[in-house]
């Protein structure tokens, strides 16, 4: 089976990999690049655990072919902290107990970051609707919403 050659940047680093046409970006990230922070919960775009940002757009890595990543800039959870310094959202998630099992956490953090980049001052409803594509079965979302609102507050400098 002939494989496609793809070059892209992931979290700012140039990467190259080979993939079958039917392979998803999620499979390439996890299996070829060994970036396992992006999770698979469903493989059909219904849970958001594989949320990544591609050229500034929040997407499900399971709904994009790896071969479509050619020339794209991809951001994953592994690139969210800077060295030892956590992103404010990451810190607030820990402080607010906004994670339990943690399987949905990378996807939710990526989605929340994408929201705050567009809308630094979201309402509770805006947070809830933006995150509707990210399922969490542990928390009931209460502390997640709290953490996102609090991180937004801090990032606005208030």
């Amino acid at each position: 089976m002939s494989r496609n050659h793809v070059s892209a940047t992931v979290n700012g680093d140039q990467v190259e990999f080979l993939c079958e046409t039917g392979q998803t970006l999620l499979e390439a990230l996890r299996d070829e690049l060994r970036l396992t922070g992006t999770k698979e919960g469903c493989g059909t775009g219904d849970c958001g655990a594989c949320s990544v940002i591609v050229d500034g757009r929040l997407v499900c890595a399971c709904l994009m072919l790896a071969v479509e990543a050619e020339g794209k800039a991809i951001q994953t959870i592994e690139g969210m902290a800077t060295g030892e310094t956590l992103h404010p959202l990451q810190r607030k998630f820990i402080e607010h107990a906004a994670l339990q099992c943690g399987i949905c956490t990378p996807g939710i953090l990526i989605a929340a970051r994408s929201l705050l980049e567009r809308n630094p001052n979201p309402t509770e409803d805006e947070v809830r609707y933006w995150l509707a594509g990210n399922l969490c079965r542990c928390t009931g979302y209460h502390k997640i919403v709290d953490a996102v609102l609090d991180a937004a507050r801090e990032m606005r400098g208030g």
């Binding site: 970036l35 396992t36 922070g37 992006t38 994953t76 959870i77 592994e78 969210m80 902290a81 956590l86 990451q90 810190r91 998630f93 820990i94 994670l99 943690g102 956490t105 990378p106 953090l109």
Partner: peptide, 9 residues
């Protein structure tokens, strides 16, 4: 387990 879970580790 907080930091590992928010960083994908």
């Amino acid at each position: 387990d907080g930091v590992d879970k928010v960083t994908g580790r």
